[in-house]
Amino acid sequence: MQTGPKNLLTDVPGLLVGNAACPRRRSGVTVVTSSDPFAAGVHVMGGAPGTRETDLLAPDKTVSEVHALVLAGGSAFGLAAAQGVAEALAARGKGFEVAGHRVPIVPAAILFDLANGGDTTGPLPYHRLGAEALAAAGTEFALGTAGAGAGATTATLKGGLGSASLMVGEATVAALVAVNALGSATVGDGPHFWAAPFEIGAEFGGLGQAADAPADWPRTKLDGATTIAVVATDARLDKSGCTRLAIAAHDGMARALVPSHTAMDGDLVFALSTGSGPETDPVRLAHGAALCLARAIARAVWLAASEPGDLLPAWRARFG
């Protein structure tokens, strides 16, 4: 198997990703957008989601394309980031024309990062962070402690923002994820990742698999969680096909985080298609999306950076 040239979501031609963060709050926002609107779907498997405009992504709803997708920290407060993105897009003349107005469609999902040691006093920054992330959108973007993953944690280590891509014939599929899981991305107390069987090269350390999985119950954290992701492709999919891709991609989350999809996670996957690529075998495409999401989750944790005041260690600080 072969990754795209950057091993990022932006290996899908036309996509742009931007990050913005508030270091004081240990929180941030990530925006996925494009010069042209794109088809999108969504699937939620966690029990505690926080979302905006996801109903519009159902295959039977009228709107067929969206202008951006937003992943944000801040719990419900972070949904304001989508409004910042929508207003900035409208100022650029982007959006559906309705009665003489431009109305951008900006679905969003949030994660809970209010108990990570950040300073949550003062004005909320998410409306501003949404606009800043959109302004920063490009083909290159930071991973690890960045964007929506700036304050993310798992049960045992810091979480973060991860991405990975894969070629499926002539098509590209890729994933972007903010890992803020109730469970763990690593096996027991060691450095090995649950996603190790799916690693390409040494994209998250090349450690291989752990010798044995622990026999006891997996560790979880006590406060809120949620892993939110985007999988993307240039293969030609409509909203129904994107919805099916989002459903399949959740397999990657279950392979990389133990446990996942719990009552206390709001685990969610958006899927999008730019439609600029070829018709592609839907089975291979769905499997590729799951592989990319598993790898992106491991990369998020592997690339997380240590910061003063961390409540949990970064993978690199603990295992070097």
Rank of each mutant, 00 (worst) to 15 (best):
T3R: 09
G4W: 06
G4M: 07
K6Y: 03
L8P: 02
T10I: 04
L15D: 09
V17L: 10
V17Q: 12
G18E: 05
G18D: 08
P23Y: 05
R26I: 03
R26Y: 10
V31A: 07
T33W: 06
S34H: 12
D36R: 14
G41V: 11
V42G: 01
H43F: 04
A48W: 03
R52C: 05
P59S: 06
H67M: 08
L71Y: 12
A72D: 00
F77I: 08
L79I: 07
A80M: 11
A82E: 03
G84T: 11
K94S: 13
F96C: 08
E97G: 14
A99M: 14
V103F: 01
V103P: 01
V103K: 01
P104T: 13
A108E: 02
I110Y: 03
F112D: 10
L114M: 14
A115N: 12
N116W: 04
D119P: 08
D119V: 04
T121S: 15
T121I: 02
P123Y: 07
Y126L: 04
H127Q: 13
G130S: 09
G130D: 04
A136H: 13
L143P: 02
A146W: 10
A148V: 00
A150D: 10
G151R: 09
A152P: 02
A152D: 00
T153R: 13
A155S: 07
L161I: 12
E170P: 13
A171E: 01
A171G: 00
T172M: 15
V177M: 09
A178I: 09
A185V: 08
W194Y: 13
I200H: 15
A202T: 14
A202W: 08
A202Q: 14
E203T: 03
G205N: 08
G206A: 01
L207T: 01
A210T: 07
D212H: 13
R219D: 15
L222Y: 11
L222C: 09
D223H: 15
V231G: 06
A232G: 06
D234P: 07
L237G: 01
C242F: 14
T243G: 15
T243N: 14
R244G: 08
A246T: 07
M253S: 13
R255V: 06
R255W: 02
V258K: 14
T262P: 04
G266P: 10
G266N: 10
D267V: 00
L268K: 00
F270W: 06
S273P: 04
T274H: 00
G275V: 03
P278W: 02
P282R: 08
V283K: 14
R284I: 05
H287K: 15
G288W: 05
A289R: 02
L293Y: 12
I297M: 11
R299L: 08
W302T: 07
L303H: 15
A304H: 00
S306D: 15
S306G: 13
E307N: 08
P308F: 07
D310V: 09
D310P: 03
P313R: 07
P313D: 11
A314N: 01
W315R: 04
A317Q: 15
A317S: 15
A317V: 12
